[in-house]
């Protein structure tokens, strides 16, 4: 999995490409937290347009980021999941706290 980010005024976009599973998520957490902790923004958009696979590890990873960001008053959103990634998001109920835009 590769992580890229783009800061646009008060928004930050975090792009996930490749496969998100327990193996790749363990390596990605530190990269994401580094990006999120070293920038100022009010909104985070996690973009999954280039995510080819994700299992429930992705849910745990996102909820972990959500808890940290909520304490800072930052809103989190999910965008562009594929059909199969969206299915995992829907079952988990994560859209209740991180809406899809």
């Amino acid at each position: 999995m590769e992580i890229k980010s783009k800061l646009d005024k008060s928004r930050i976009y975090v792009y996930f490409s490749g496969e998100i599973d327990e193996h790749s998520a363990n390596k990605a957490r530190a990269t994401i937290d580094n990006v999120l902790e070293n920038n100022n923004f009010k909104v985070v958009i996690f973009d999954f347009s280039n995510t080819s696979f994700m299992d429930s590890t992705g849910i745990g990873m996102l909820l972990g980021r959500y808890k940290k960001l909520k304490k800072r008053g930052v809103s989190s959103y999910i965008s562009n999941p594929s059909f199969s990634v969206n299915k995992v998001f829907q079952i988990s109920g994560i859209y209740d706290v991180m809406p899809k835009i």
Partner: peptide, 15 residues
């Protein structure tokens, strides 16, 4: 504490 969602078996049963 390891940020596990607890959704593994639910996903298996759904899919």
């Amino acid at each position: 504490d390891d940020e596990r969602s607890g959704m593994g078996f639910t996903i298996i049963k759904t899919f």
